[in-house]
Structures are given as structure tokens and as C-alpha cells.
Design a protein around this nucleic acid. Sequence first.
DNA 1: ATTAAATATTTCGATATCGAAAGAATTGGA
DNA 2: TCCAATTCTTTCGATATCGAAATATTTAAT
Lengths: 146, 146
Amino acid sequence: MKKPKFSQRQQQALDLYVKLMRAGNRVTSSIHHHLQHDNLTHSQFAILETLYHLGPQNQSELSRKILKSNANVTTVVDSLEKKHLVSRMRSETDRRVVKVHLTSAGDEMLAKIFPRHVEVIEKRLAILTDQEQQQLAELLKKLGKG
Amino acid sequence: MKKPKFSQRQQQALDLYVKLMRAGNRVTSSIHHHLQHDNLTHSQFAILETLYHLGPQNQSELSRKILKSNANVTTVVDSLEKKHLVSRMRSETDRRVVKVHLTSAGDEMLAKIFPRHVEVIEKRLAILTDQEQQQLAELLKKLGKG
DNA sequence: ATTAAATATTTCGATATCGAAAGAATTGGA
DNA sequence: TCCAATTCTTTCGATATCGAAATATTTAAT
């Protein structure tokens, strides 16, 4: 039975950290459910969504946008390619670069799924009032920097 | 170029979701750094920490506490066992149950690492004032339910 | 007591995820 | 022009992570 003595401030930080992770987890798992319906993982969806809203992208750009390593993007794009939801094209102007495109099947899939995605998130976050959401957004924005 | 029309409220929920994930990611990666120092992953640390503070636990209890599947806990405990940081013991009273204990090496490791862990978190969250932290905790607590 | 349902763990097969190293192409100096 | 540093992607070897199925054991209900 250890009783490490931490300051009040440290204890508060620890608790806050746990709450942050827990809240993220909960929201994520609501989303997980609806994605599973279409046999998509989070990362697969994140890439499809980026392409859907921003058009064809390099893999490095995708990596930056979805906050995952380049190596990981390679893997996930592989799996999306196997499902014929995206295709790769080597850039003509810079032959190191691989541009990833949505196929028409990928585009249709996103068109179908995205509205539901938004709904799920909105419903899940509706636990908070409008004002609370704005407050939370402020705080998270600040915390997300640094 | 798609321009899906979402309500103001939906747009706000989407943005908030992104901020939540991003903040979690950032804090997590600070922690990742310090754990890497001792060749521990997050899940490995989470299990060690639980045992350190709460004493020997069933794997299912660990699963509930660290918010991961039973299958995953089996894997992570395997890896901790290989490092001789924990040991398994079949319960005498209920032979389905496997109790996981810290070894003395595991205990020493935690005693060394945990204070640093707290410091890292405290420093990272110090971006927010005391009052902001309390506010954030309230909001996340509410969001984490439901 | 016997069987059915519930619980704890492991195994299996996918996919995710990382860091490091390797390979290919481009760019910026000297 | 040529080489060194940089950039983009892939490969490799670990570990994480899940859901579903399989095992073993316990509990509950008849």
C-alpha cells in the first residue's frame, strides 16, 4: 500500500488527464460503432474523409492531417486500395510523391457515410449545452497547443 | 469540391470532436516520450501503475480499469511477464481467475518512474490555469458519461 | 446432482501503429 | 556539374488492439 504524497496541483493534473482520456475514449467508441457498420476503421475513415473534403493528397500530407506516421499511412492506404476505395498515382512532377485519390466507389461510400458520422458526433456531444461546448472548445484549443 | 451543408450546431460538434482528439493526442505524446526512456508502452505502464497503486488484480479487472479488451490485457501481461516486471498466479478460490502481481523489479521500476510521470503530466497541463483545469475537468466529466 | 448460463482467460486472424533503416528522387550549394 | 542533405515512400520487426471462437471453471436453476 503506497501513499505517494503529491501536491494538490499534481493530483488535479492526474485526475484531469484521466478524464481527458476517458472522454476521448467514449466519444471515439460511439463513432467506432457506426464505422464498423461499413467495415471501416478509424484511420481508414480519416483518410477517406480527408480526400473527400480536400481532394487528392500526398501520403505525407495525409500523415500530417490524420496525426499518424508515414509508415502507418502506407499500411492504411494499402488496405483501402485492396477495397478499391482509393487509388495511388505517382506524381509526374515529383516522382518521389504518391498521390492518393478516391475512386468513385470511395466517393460514393463517403457521401453515404459522412452525414451519419456528423449525426453521431452531434448526438454524442449533445450531452453538453451549446455554451458548454464553446467553453470546452476554448479550453481544448489552448491545451492542444504548446 | 463538396460543400455539404451542415447546421451551425453540427459544425461546432465536428470542430469540438477534432479538438478533443487533438488535445488528447498531444498530451499522450508527451507522456509517450518519457515512457520510451524505460522501454514501456502506454498499456504496459497503465497496467503496472494499476498494480502499483491498487495491488494484485484479475486480468478482467485490469481490463476494465485500463479500458482495453480482455484479449489485449492477456497480450500486454505476456509482454510484462517476459520482462519480469509482473507475474501471474492462478487464484486458489476461483481457478478461472489469474491474479497479476508486481515483481520486486516491477515495483522498483514504478517507484522510479511514477514521480516523473506525474511531473510530465503536471507540466503539460500547466498550460491551463488552475481555474481552467477545474472547468475543463467538469466539462470532461460530463462528456465522459452517457 | 445435472445441466444451462455466466464468467475468466487464451487463441486466432485482422489491422493499426511506431521507429529505424533502406531505396529513390529532388534540391541546394560549392 | 556534382555531391551532400533533404524529402517521400516502403519495408521490417515489435507491440497493440479488437471481435469471435474455444476452454475451463463456477454458479444458478431445476
